[in-house]
Write a protein that binds this DNA or RNA. Structure first.
Lengths: 349, 349
DNA sequence: ATGAAAGCGCTAACAG
DNA sequence: CTGTTAGCGCTTTCAT
């Protein structure tokens, strides 16, 4: 059975040269090692005929470099993460790297497990949007000098490079917009607690209030996940409050979908009965029954920069000063915010 | 520097046993090889202390099995594919396999390149939603006895297993629905030509007409990609036709978004001015300004079945009879179809 | 009950 | 200009 894949050895045997020479010729090192034109050509020719292509397992084992990066995200079906994934994969491919993908489903256990799996597969580096509640495994990786870049979520007091949106500023502007439109009872439906995007957005929400001397009603800050169900459930409950909030600041696109569902079930209209602004712009946002005013993130750029940052670390062995990068967000004005007539602002900055 | 990762050798050295023994103990073969309880325990203990975990590169090289599968899709940011990706990854993980992901961007070149990359990395099998215009590379893989499963797109006269929706039937029902509502000038905005989902949907569109003795106006079958731009451009053009089509059958969710954009730009309303039905149900479909009537696919199941099919092939070496699996679609009735008053049907079945 | 040795396919140090 | 040798970390014959 010569039916198995061609190897350096099989080529060498066939041509009566050594494996080394074949390896050198095929790696474009003919000049450096002064391989005769003749030998080189016959090797290249044979390789082509046999459709030789190198076994990356063997190569990786020998070189301790696999041109593979591990990528862990909490939910690939969330369009925000999907579009980041697209740009990560594309950038990585451009530089000759492949992606091993894991969806952690917002579970720290799966995240840890996947991380270990990737290490065993000797990825050259990791891009990860951590679930965000535990960090020990990430620190451990970093201490092993395996390059790692956090994406979307970071840890303020941890020395790991990250790329994320300026969630604080984005939330601040979003809530400011509501306040400027006369809203003072603004609900905030938050995502997974103790993740940086959530923390920063909630902080922005609060500071927007404080800046305008508005008191913060903690009972209006609700929810605990980035998913649609959370948006639905919390909105159902919010709409039973008395007095009703006049506006909702929703911390993710999926939460908003759930909120919209609840609002429409209750027979209410956006923005007539309740105003809304949502994080994450999506292609469909403008076509919703009420076109949604959103805080748009630069997802493509986030993916590109994270990949760049990682590959820099991988290819220049020296570990850079870990840097954190915040990308600006942009408010996209549509029709989901109504001016609130019951203006009761104590003061308008 | 004993700082590097622990290996079988380092454990063996430390304990004064052989690598073989360590390997056996850690692979749960202590009984089979009658390793003494004492030795076994001290090996397990040491492995735990050192946080040993096996180098999968080395293992894969030796075993010719990597527990990795390659997954190639044309657009991970398309929510249809994203949700399939989620289920593929999840199923694979459940059975101990990791995913190498590539986005071919609907380019046959990238697809081929990625395929080769994956083969070099010795994946145990491949799941691929081929761009669909060329098959030679897929056939070649299959002939090397590397398990492969096509997902979403298949080739009717090619002997490769596949999983897809019953696109023909789905389209037939969709267009029937339009016809039953009195529409006879129905535009079809199609996706990438010569891909099976597109072909089958267009075939369904045509047969629905033929079944009701309606003539097919080829000039109403337009478009050439599954993306949003295509939907936008083709709808812009369609709306300049005279007489206007009274309904649109859109072959993908992204096409529909583009179509909606064009329709709203032209100051028209769905369904008052033009009716619409779209392939692919999405979480947001019901919240569009006109809740969209859609043909829903079982994306999660498609992913699960494809993975199952592949793993079956991988784990029982024998190559099964390649089978094609069609999953039923379901029409989800909403508000985007209006009864057409100008009933001019020659006959109603 | 355990080990020595070979080899998966590749590259690099060293030797001519 | 080319080859020999060693070794990456693992599993598996074959010995004992």
């Amino acid at each position: 059975m010569k039916n198995s894949n061609p190897t350096l050895k099989s080529i060498a045997l066939k041509l009566g040269v050594s494996v080394t020479t074949v390896s050198r010729a095929l790696n474009g090192k003919s000049n450096r090692y002064r391989i005769s034109k003749e030998t080189e050509l016959k090797i290249l020719k044979a390789a082509k005929e046999l459709a030789y292509s190198p076994n990356q397992l063997a190569r990786g084992l020998r070189l301790k470099r696999t041109n593979t990066i591990g990528y862990i995200i909490p939910d690939i079906s969330n369009p925000f993460f999907a579009s980041i994934a697209k740009s990560v994969e594309k950038s990585a491919r451009k530089f000759g790297y492949s992606i091993i993908l894991c969806d952690s489903e917002e579970s720290t256990d799966i995240e840890k497990e996947s991380l270990q799996l990737m290490l065993n597969r000797k990825v050259d580096g990791l891009i990860i949007s951590p679930v965000g509640l535990e960090v020990s495994h990430l620190v451990a990786v970093s201490q092993k000098n395996i390059p790692i870049v956090l994406l979307d979520r970071y840890f303020p007091n941890l020395n790991l490079p990250f790329v994320t949106s300026d969630n604080y500023q984005g939330a601040l502007e979003a809530v400011n917009l509501l306040i400027e439109n006369g809203h003072t009872r603004i609900a905030c439906i938050q995502g997974l607690k103790n993740t940086s995007p959530n923390n920063d957005r909630v902080r922005g929400y609060k500071d927007a209030h404080l800046n305008k001397q508005l008191t913060i009603d903690e009972s209006l800050i609700v929810g605990d996940s980035f998913g649609e169900d959370n948006g639905y459930i919390e909105t159902k409950l919010l709409l039973r409050k008395n007095p009703l909030p006049t506006a909702i600041f929703s911390v993710s696109n999926l939460i908003s979908l759930g909120a919209i569902r609840a609002i429409s079930e209750e027979g209410l209209k956006i923005p007539e009965d309740i105003s809304m602004i949502s994080f994450d712009d999506q292609p469909y946002s403008r076509f919703l029954s009420t076109p949604m005013t959103t805080v748009s993130q630069q997802s493509t750029q986030i993916g590109q920069i994270a990949t760049k940052l990682l590959l820099d670390q991988i290819e220049s062995k020296r570990s850079h000063d870990p840097q954190g990068i915040f990308l600006p967000t942009k408010i996209i004005l549509r029709d989901s915010i109504k001016r609130n007539i019951n203006l009761k602002l104590k003061s308008i900055g």
